[in-house]
């Protein structure tokens, strides 16, 4: 899909300006090759973490916990793992069926998406160590706030 789109765009742009388009494609390939080791490192880290922090483990850890402890556990697990949406959300559905609170699920999915311990090598390459650490800490805080708000909206937290 995205290759087809890229190909069509490249052809259209090529007709309009040959040199600019060739330069663009060359630049893209150059960047890809330059960034290859960083992406490879991330893939390796993710494959290791997916093996040890498996679906079953997450269900076992989060399946029986709720409240503050459950939320903290969810945020920890979400931060250190990285999984594609088509794995993460069915998993969230399973947790929901097991009676896990929306607050805990919110904490898990939000940190999963926003906080990236495993994407640290890539992020630091582009934005530097300091910004990477600050952004991840802010994201952690946002995830915490969002999950508490989710809890309030669902009446799981009474204020």
């Amino acid at each position: 899909m995205i290759y087809l789109l890229t190909l069509l765009l490249t052809i259209v742009l090529f007709i309009r300006d040959r040199e600019k388009t060739i330069a663009g494609v060359k630049l893209g390939i150059k960047k890809l090759i330059k960034n290859l080791p960083v992406f490879l490192n991330m893939i390796i880290l993710v494959s290791i973490s997916l093996y040890f922090v498996s679906d079953e483990l997450i269900v076992r850890f989060l399946g029986e916990s709720s409240g503050i402890i459950g939320l903290l556990l969810a945020i920890l697990l979400g931060s250190i793992s990285l999984m594609p949406g088509f794995i993460a959300f069915p998993l969230a559905g399973i947790l929901l069926d097991k009676g896990v609170s929306y607050m805990v699920i919110g904490g898990f999915t939000t940190t999963l998406m926003m906080v990236g311990v495993l994407t640290y090598p890539i992020e630091k390459e582009f934005f530097g160590v300091r910004v990477t650490i600050i952004r991840n800490l802010i994201s952690l805080l946002i995830a915490l706030l969002v999950s508490v708000l989710v809890g309030i909206f669902y009446g799981e937290i009474i204020i």
Binding site: I2, T6, K20, T21, G24, V25, K26, K30, K31
Partner: peptide, 26 residues
């Protein structure tokens, strides 16, 4: 896991970088 994730990445990553390159020049 490594093999699966690599295949997922190959499905879009090169295209994304070509798009970034085109964005830079155009």
């Amino acid at each position: 896991n490594f093999l699966q994730f690599t295949l997922t990445m190959i499905k879009f990553l090169p295209a994304v970088f070509v798009l970034i390159g085109l964005f830079d020049t155009w």
